[in-house]
Each structure stands twice: as C-alpha cells, then as structure tokens.
Write a protein that binds this DNA or RNA. Structure first.
Length: 200
DNA sequence: AACATGATCAACT
DNA sequence: GTTGATCATGTTT
C-alpha cells in the first residue's frame, strides 16, 4: 500500500502556471475506485498560460466548453478532442484568469489491473502514455469536468522530487498556434514520455 | 504516413 | 439552425 498522506494543498495551484506545470512532475495522481486506489506518477505536462497564448482554449474568452478553466486553481477541466479522446487539465492561478496544466503522461504505480481494463491494452509502458491514454486509464471524462483535485476521490500527493537537470523543457506537442513557447515539461529519458522526438 | 472520429466555435443565414 | 474549419490524439500500416 502506498502512502497517500502528503496531499498537495490548495495553495500550490495558485502559483504561476509554468511553475505548477514544472512542479507537477514527480507528484502522484490518485483516484479512488471501487476496488481501491488508482495512482500514477506524473511524468509529462504542458502549461497553457493566460496571456499571448493562442493555443489556450481560454484565450478568446469564456465558451461553453472552457468554463471550467475560469474556476480557481485546483479545479479539473476535461474536454473531448478529435471526437475520440479526453484530455485532463488542472486549473491554475486565481478565479477568472483562465489557465491550466494539461497532464500528458504518467507512470502507473497502483491499480494497474484496473487501468488495463479501462484502457483495453496490457502494455504497462503505454497505459498512461499520452493525454488521451491518461484520461482513459484513470476513467476520467466529461463527467469529471468541474470536479476538485482536492476531493476525497481525486487528489494529488507528494511523491518524488526532481532537480532542474532531470527535467526537460520543450515546445508543446500537437498545436499550431503559439507553437514556439517552451511550456512542455517532462522527466528526461523516461520511457513513459509521450513523444518519441525528444529526450526519450 | 494515413486515418478514424465527433465536439466546438465563429460566422453566417 | 446550419456550415465548415479546426483540433492539447492514438493506433495502425
């Protein structure tokens, strides 16, 4: 059994989005399920910042889809992409700002059996590799939009700390606007990182 | 390198 | 109400 005692406090999510994205690497994402706990170490994130970021869904103001992004830090924003996959974000900064961190990949730690069922594949290395896979492995979808990451059912814990040398910073993946900004963070050389192009 | 797949949004009638 | 472009992707060849 894993120690879930050091739960991340709310203050953490009010920090600047880039900082939160960087600091999320190494933390444990935990979700309570019928059989116990699903848990994974966050390995890869992307920041979507408030100003001059045209790839941010909130950049052109509030819409039906992106409402959750304008909540205060610590709220979960989930949406569907390409009509197929779900992407999970954690809202950052203050109420009304409109920024968040996308969780792109994680390393399974607990509840592997259930993740395998959720995903329909058994390759451990790929269970949570890529934003769509992460959402599916944890069974997160539109029903989880607007939930809090400070819940009893879904929360983050301290787990591992990495130095800046162990973390790579690159442009984000799969976007066409503001594609040059260095807002993607991942653990260098980790096989759970989603893109093959860099540092994997 | 191709493609499956559908919601969302802006810009119209 | 409808249209059409776009999309924080993943899987398969």
């Amino acid at each position: 059994m894993i120690n879930f005692s050091k739960i991340i406090s709310k203050d953490f999510y009010f920090e600047k989005t880039e900082i939160v994205a960087r600091e999320l690497i190494g933390k444990l994402f935990v979700k309570k399920s019928a059989n116990g706990f699903l848990a994974a170490e966050i390995i890869e994130t992307e920041a979507y910042i408030a100003d001059f970021d045209e790839a941010n869904h909130a950049n052109r103001g509030m819409t039906n889809r992106n409402q959750a992004m304008f909540s205060e830090g610590g709220v979960i924003y989930v949406y569907k992409i390409y009509g197929v996959h779900h992407c999970v974000n954690i809202v950052t900064e203050l109420d009304g700002v409109g920024c968040a961190v996308l969780i792109r990949a994680a390393m399974p730690v607990s509840g592997l059996e259930e993740m395998i069922v959720n995903r329909g594949v058994s390759d451990e290395n790929r269970l949570l590799k890529g934003p769509g896979c992460f959402a599916k492995g944890f069974d997160l979808d539109i029903k989880d939009n607007f939930k809090s990451i400070l819940d009893d059912d879904i929360f983050l814990c301290e787990h591992k700390k990495y130095s800046d040398e162990e973390i790579a910073v690159t442009p984000r993946i799969g976007i066409s606007k503001s594609a040059d900004l260095p807002l993607r963070f991942f653990k260098k050389g980790c096989k759970f990182v989603s893109s093959k192009k860099f540092g994997n």
